[in-house]
Simulated assay, not measured.
Amino acid sequence: MQKYPMTVEGEKALREELQQLKTVERPRVIQDIADAREHGDLKENAEYHAAREQQGFIEGRIQDIEGKLSNAQVIDIKSIPHSGKVLFGTTVTIINVETDEEVEYRIVGDDEADIKNNRISVSSPIARALIGKEEGDTVVVNIPSGTVEYEIDEVKHV
């Protein structure tokens, strides 16, 4: 069975979502289905069909989260001694060698990735190129339009 890396924060967020789904959303949709049944003919009852569809979505998401949590390998970067190497969970500042553009990314699990918040998946091309490298190293990242060269400016364990 394959384990999936996840940060402590990512695990916490999934557990909170699971709790919300089981204690708030699931009971609400069950009540919505009961209310819709009281309106009579279920074949033409849009409220009933919408509630059943919502129930299917909620149950599917609960199963998905439970599966992810059971296969999660939670990594607490704060417990790993700072070595200057890029590891899962570290925050890395890189500089585009051509344009001098600086960007900071945190390397996280697939489900936690959010490019708008500078959180990239450990399986992304940039993260794969950075993992194992150290401050001062230069990495080449393959992108659809060719390659980009970055210099690793700083690695933080936060």
Rank of each mutant, 00 (worst) to 15 (best):
K3D: 07
Y4L: 04
Y4A: 03
V8G: 06
E11I: 05
K12Y: 11
K12Q: 10
R15K: 14
Q19I: 01
V24I: 15
R26K: 15
R28F: 14
V29A: 03
V29F: 05
I30K: 11
Q31R: 11
Q31P: 00
A34N: 07
A36Y: 00
R37Q: 10
E38R: 11
K43C: 01
E44G: 08
A46P: 02
A46C: 00
E47V: 03
E47A: 04
A51Y: 03
E53K: 14
Q54C: 00
G56E: 14
G56N: 13
I58T: 09
E59Q: 14
I62V: 15
Q63A: 12
D64N: 09
D64P: 00
D64T: 05
E66C: 13
Q73T: 08
V74P: 12
V74D: 09
D76Y: 01
I77D: 00
K78C: 01
K78Q: 09
S79V: 04
I80T: 15
P81T: 08
P81R: 01
P81Q: 04
K85G: 07
V86S: 11
V86K: 08
L87H: 01
L87P: 01
F88T: 05
F88E: 10
T93Q: 14
I94A: 13
I94V: 15
N96I: 09
E98S: 08
E98M: 06
D100S: 15
D100Q: 13
V103G: 05
Y105E: 06
G109Y: 08
D111E: 14
A113I: 11
N118W: 10
N118A: 10
S123G: 09
S124R: 04
A127G: 05
A127F: 11
A129I: 07
I131A: 02
E134D: 11
E134P: 00
E134V: 14
E135Q: 15
G136C: 00
D137T: 11
D137C: 07
N142G: 04
I143T: 08
P144E: 14
S145M: 11
V148T: 15
E149L: 03
Y150Q: 02
I152P: 06
V158F: 09
